[in-house]
Nucleic acid binder design. Structure first.
Lengths: 287, 287
DNA sequence: CAAGTATTGTAATAAATATTCCATTTTTCT
DNA sequence: AGAAAAATGGAATATTTATTACAATACTTG
C-alpha cells in the first residue's frame, strides 16, 4: 500500500473503521499489525512499542510504518488515541471545549439560559447511553445476573454521588422480591453494617472518582468475609475494582465536577429487570 | 519520613493500604503525591512522570522519591503495578468481540438476554431524553433557578422510587454551596423534619406513580407553613402538583412496567448546574 | 539564635524508547 | 529470467523520559 496520507483518524473508533476498509490493500506485515491493533486495544494503550512488535511478530519499525500509513506522525501519536480512550473522560471528545464556550457565552449575554444547559445535558447523556450500549459485555451481564440469583441476599454500598444508584438498586431489587439491603452508613455504622455479609451474600459496590475511601473499605472487609463482589465504577484501577469478582466500567457524562448518573442507572435497571426476567423464565419452565 | 524501605507492595490494593497507613508520616509534598495516587489511578497507569508531576503540582523527582519511600526501585516500577492491574481485568471489548456480540444478537430470538434488555433500555432512555428536551418550558426552568437562588435553604423530599432523585439533588446542591437538606424520614421522623421549613425556604418534592402518600403529606404541611414548592412528577393531577408553585411534568422511559429515572435526573442536573452558572455569572458581574 | 537535619527544587546524567536509514529479501511485471 | 519496485529486518540515531546528584530552602532542636 502506497503512502495513503489523508487526515489521520482522531479516535480509535474511526481508526478501526479505516483499518477494516483498507485491510486488503495492506502488505502482509501491516495486516498482522492491523489485526493486532483491532484485537488488543489495551496493549496499544499501555505497552511499549517493542512489546507490541514482539507480540504481533513484527519489527518495531513496522509499527511505525503502520502508523504512518494511516496518517500519523509516528506510532506514539497513534498510541495516544488509545490512551485517551482508556482515560475516564466524557464520551464526547469535544465536551470540555463546548462547556468552555458555554460559560463564555453566559458571560457576554448576561444571564445563561438554563434551557441550553438542559439541551447540552440531554445530548451528553444520550452519548453516554450510546457508549454504554457498546461497551458492556454480554458475558459480564449474564454473570452478574447469575451472581444476583445465587446470592442469599444482596447488599448495596455507594456513598456521595453514587448513593442514588445504590438506593435505586436496593429499592428495585426488593420490588422483584430479592432480599436487598442498603449499607447507608447512618450513624457511622458502615463497618458494623458490612460485617453482616457472609460467603453466601453478594455486595454490589458503586464508586466513582473521587473515590470515597469508605466504599473501598467496605469492599475490602466483604472480600475478607468471602462474600462475592460486583463493582460498578469508572475505572478498572479504582479502589474497589481490585476486590471485585466482576467489574463494570461505566463512563458517564460529566460537566465540571458533576458527573451524570444516567449510564450507571441504566445498567442498574438492566441488572434488576434481567434478573426478574430470568426468574420468571425459570418459574415458567419448572411448571 | 525517613527511608522506610520494607518490601514494596505488589499490587495497587496493597499500595493504597500502605499509603493510608503512613499518610501522616509523609512530608507535605509526598502527601500531595499520595493524594494524587489514590485519586487518579488511571493517570498512574498511563501518563508520563512529567504530566503526573504537573497535575499533582510537584517535581518529577518527587514522584520518584515517593516511589522509593514505599520501597520501589523507582517510579517506573510503581507505575507497572497500575498497568498490570489494568491488563489483568477483562479487557474492554475488542473489535472482534463487539462484532460477535452484534451478529449473535439476531440468532438468539425468543429469550430475552440481558444484553437485549440493556439495548432496549438505553434506547428508551434516549427517547425519554429527547422528549424532555422538547417538553420542558424555558420559563419554568428560569423560575425554578430563581426560586432556588432566593431560598434560604432547599429541602428535598422523594420516597421509594423517587428517593435517588431527591438524594442526588441534595448532594449536588451542597456541592455548589447551596444549603440543602434531604427529608429522608429516617426513624419515622418525616413530619418532624418537614416542620423545619419556613416561608423563606424551598421544598422540591419528587413523586411518581404510584404516589407515596407521605410525600404529599410533606408537601401539604410545607404549604401550610408558606414555604415555596417545586414539584417534579409525572402528571398535573398527581397529589403533589396541587400544592406546588411550580410543577415539572416528566415522562420517564418505561420498559415493561419498570420506569426509569433518567429524564428526572437530567432535569435535576440541569437545575443544579444552571443555578451554579447563574451564581457564577452574578459573582462575576459584581466585580 | 545558630547548627544540624530534613525537605524540596533544579539541572545534569543515565536509561529507555521511538524513529530513521540502509541493506537485504521478496514480489511484480515485462 | 531479469530488472524494477515494494516490503522487510536490523542496526544506528534521535528523542523522550526517568533517575540521580547537588544546591537551596525550610524546619528542628539544643
Amino acid at each position: 500500500m502506497a503512502g495513503n496520507d489523508v487526515a489521520a483518524p482522531s479516535d480509535p473508533e474511526k481508526l478501526r473503521a479505516e483499518i477494516v476498509k483498507n485491510y486488503d490493500q495492506l502488505s502482509p506485515r501491516l495486516q498482522q499489525v492491523a489485526k493486532y491493533v483491532l484485537d488488543n486495544p489495551n496493549d496499544m494503550a499501555l505497552q511499549t512499542l517493542a512489546v507490541i512488535a514482539e507480540r504481533s511478530s513484527v519489527q518495531p519499525s513496522t509499527i511505525v510504518r503502520f502508523a504512518k500509513t494511516f496518517g500519523y506522525d509516528g506510532a506514539s501519536q497513534m498510541q495516544e488515541l488509545f490512551r485517551d480512550e482508556m482515560l475516564t473522560q466524557p464520551p464526547s471528545p469535544s465536551y470540555a471545549e463546548r462547556i468552555r464556550q458555554f460559560t463564555r457565552r453566559a458571560g457576554t449575554a448576561g444571564a445563561l439560559a438554563p434551557h441550553d444547559v438542559m439541551q447540552e445535558f440531554a445530548d451528553n447523556n444520550i452519548l453516554a447511553l450510546e457508549h454504554l450500549k457498546n461497551s458492556v459485555r454480554k458475558v459480564d451481564l449474564e454473570r452478574a445476573i447469575d451472581m444476583i440469583r445465587t446470592a442469599n441476599a444482596v447488599y448495596l454500598v455507594g456513598l456521595r454521588r453514587s448513593f442514588p444508584v445504590a438506593s435505586y438498586l436496593a429499592y428495585a431489587l426488593r420490588h422483584v422480591d430479592k432480599r436487598a439491603y442498603l449499607l447507608d452508613g447512618v450513624a457511622g455504622m458502615l463497618a458494623e453494617q458490612s460485617s453482616l455479609l457472609t460467603s453466601k451474600d453478594l455486595l454490589i459496590a458503586i464508586s466513582f472518582h473521587p473515590y470515597a475511601p469508605e466504599t473501598a473499605e467496605v469492599a475490602a472487609a466483604c472480600k475478607e468475609q468471602k462474600a462475592r463482589i460486583i463493582a460498578i465504577t469508572d475505572s478498572r484501577l479504582s479502589p474497589i475494582a481490585g476486590a471485585a469478582d466482576l467489574c463494570f466500567e461505566i463512563k458517564d457524562a460529566e460537566v465540571r465536577q458533576f458527573r451524570s448518573l444516567t449510564a450507571s442507572l441504566c445498567l442498574a435497571q438492566t441488572l434488576v429487570i434481567s434478573y426478574a426476567f430470568e426468574m420468571e423464565g425459570r418459574a415458567r419452565s419448572q411448571r
